[in-house]
């Protein structure tokens, strides 16, 4: 299927059209994203692959409403405006250490629900369920700076799942995990969204991860090639 196929689909979660993102770094213009057009549909399982610095993170930031394209556009037809994406409808897993350092793991996972004005006990119970599924109950009361990189990433994924979002954007979620743990993490992810229409977009280097996804988008030199798998 061609890129045009995707562009023509009306009921999509995310719609990116001719997005370009440039930065000014010390007076030098850097084109992180030269050209990207894509759509994320319900039930999508997409792997965004490409070498480091190819623009994967920039694309995910734009898709997640964390950044705006310099030119082109991004919209979320089935999710609402950029202000209504997070927390709730869109879960984002950053590749960096993304837990709030002054909260423990349980509180970090409960955080999106609390931001959605849920009762603390309810948010806590949901967070505990997720920790149990992720096999992280023993670190529930630890603080981020007491955790390993792998534990941090799993906790970040758990947090992204806490609101049962329609779209999960994960930037290298298994980058610091061994094969078995990565496999388990993906298993949990898939299991969690199995009977839903939630779309999953993962930026990854890991071919095994990419292989488990339904679709693969390639990023090279800031240009996105969208193809159906």
């Amino acid at each position: 299927m061609s890129a045009e196929y995707y562009m023509d689909k009306p009921d999509c979660f995310i719609k990116v059209e001719n997005a370009v993102r440039t930065y000014n770094q010390g007076g030098i213009r850097v084109e992180a994203l030269k050209s990207a057009s894509c759509r994320v549909l319900p039930h999508d399982r997409i792997a965004v692959v490409g070498p480091s610095g190819s623009g994967k993170s920039s694309l995910l930031h734009i898709m997640g409403g964390l950044d705006k394209p310099t030119t082109g556009s991004v919209s979320w037809p089935l999710l609402g405006g950029p202000e209504s994406l997070r927390p709730g409808r869109l879960g984002f897993v950053s590749q960096t250490r993304s837990l709030v350092s002054s909260l423990n793991v349980l509180e970090n996972i409960a955080l999106p629900l609390l931001l959605l004005d849920h009762d603390y006990e309810e948010a806590k119970n949901t967070a505990e369920d997720l920790l149990r599924i992720m096999g992280l109950m023993d670190i529930a009361n630890k603080q981020p700076d007491e955790l390993s990189g792998g534990q941090l990433q799993r906790a970040a994924v758990a947090r992204a799942l806490s609101t049962r979002p329609k779209v999960i954007l994960a930037d290298e979620p298994t980058g610091q995990l061994d094969h078995t743990t990565a496999d388990h993490l993906l298993g949990v992810l898939f299991e969690h969204i199995r009977d839903t229409d939630t779309a999953l977009v993962i930026a990854t280097h890991d071919r095994d991860v990419a292989r488990r996804m339904d679709k693969k988008w390639k990023m090279q030199y800031g240009i996105l090639e969208v193809e159906a798998v």
């Binding site: 202000e83 984002f92 950053s94 993304s98």
Partner: peptide, 18 residues
């Protein structure tokens, strides 16, 4: 010193008031 935390809070979806 907490700007990192504020950035994370925004990533998670905290609004200005939060």
């Amino acid at each position: 010193e907490r700007k990192r935390n504020f950035a994370i809070l925004k990533t998670v979806g905290a609004n200005g008031k939060q």
